[in-house]
Design a protein around this nucleic acid. Structure first.
Length: 279
DNA sequence: AATAGCGGCAACCGCCTCCAC
DNA sequence: GGTGGAGGCGGTTGCCGCTAT
């Protein structure tokens, strides 16, 4: 069943936002808060789609947004979170203070995936790429480096299926104050302290800041093959650096959760859901 | 100096889920 | 239980600036 677009596009501005529009949106949200995106543009005096306003706010105007200069630590964390969560950018972004899902998605597509490929790692599965040997047997792709003009033909795995431990919403009194990343204190990395108090909290979907939604796990073809994060190449590099970084603590939480559940019962995926509940 | 090609990123699109009615 | 509105998410597009020729 088709749905009507979120708003009539007739007469609405599209494309890049001008400073005046930014100001209008900013002023309105500062005065009235987020939400009601559909009606917001009209109330704020903007000729924009509500979705466009929401996107602009989340990705650009929100306070606390960091722009550019993704640090090596963040870099590494993104790769490792991606190995755990797949293309679940909002989840990944939720663990990176001040970063937006869009930014991380772009950064992944333009930098990290290429880097992994150049290092011989399949960006989809985080497993080693296999240089093509046979024709027509496996899906391959040719990666060309536009600067060096070199080409490399590699076998690319199918995109990992996200093993969706059915998103769980907590309703009623069971709510979690886990904020979106704009509420993170990047200096203190208080996500870690929170997460250490509640070891499973790293798996709450920060996109659902008031209800909580469980993260998914990577899944292989048979549906039960969790990525062996211990084999993940950059781990050792990371561990060798400043061992106490908050990113490292964060990652250890993920490892604990995965290992616990992997050992306990790989086949009974449902139990993973249960174990990830926060009480 | 001109221009073609490429990379990066902001923004859009369409689908999905949740929830109120 | 069914339906539709609203918000959220991931994939994709297209513009703009930079670089190579």
């Amino acid at each position: 069943m088709g749905r009507a677009p979120c708003c009539s596009k007739i007469g609405l501005h599209r494309g890049p936002w001008c400073p005046r529009e930014d100001t209008l949106l900013l002023n309105y949200i500062q005065a009235h808060g987020e939400g009601n995106w559909r009606s917001l543009p009209k109330k704020a005096g903007l000729l924009r789609c509500g979705k466009s306003c929401r996107l602009r706010w989340l990705n650009y105007l929100r306070p606390g947004i960091k722009r550019g200069n993704i640090t090596p630590d963040e870099d590494d964390l993104i790769i490792r979170l991606h190995s755990l969560l797949g293309n679940r950018w909002s989840l990944i972004a939720g663990r990176l203070p001040g970063r937006t899902d869009n930014e991380i998605k772009n950064y992944w597509n333009t930098h990290l995936s290429k880097r992994l490929i150049s290092q011989g790692t399949d960006p989809n599965t985080h497993k080693p790429l296999v240089v093509r040997q046979e024709k027509n047997k496996r899906k391959t792709t040719t990666i060309s480096d536009k600067k060096s003009k070199s080409k490399l033909t590699v076998e690319v795995s199918e995109k990992p299926k996200i093993h969706l431990p059915k998103p769980i919403r907590f309703t009623g009194t069971t709510s979690f104050p886990l904020p979106r990343n704009d509420s993170f204190d990047s200096d203190q990395c208080n996500t870690t302290s929170t997460a250490l108090d509640k070891p499973w909290s790293g798996f709450v979907d920060p996109g659902n800041n008031d209800k909580g939604k469980m993260a998914g796990f990577l899944d292989d073809d048979d549906g039960h093959d969790f990525v062996n994060v211990l084999d993940f190449g950059c781990r050792s590099k990371f561990l060798g650096s400043e061992g106490d970084s908050c990113f490292e603590k964060l990652y250890e939480e993920y490892l604990q959760v995965l290992e616990t559940n992997h050992d306990a019962d790989l086949l009974q995926v449902g139990c993973v859901d249960d174990s990830l509940l926060i009480w």
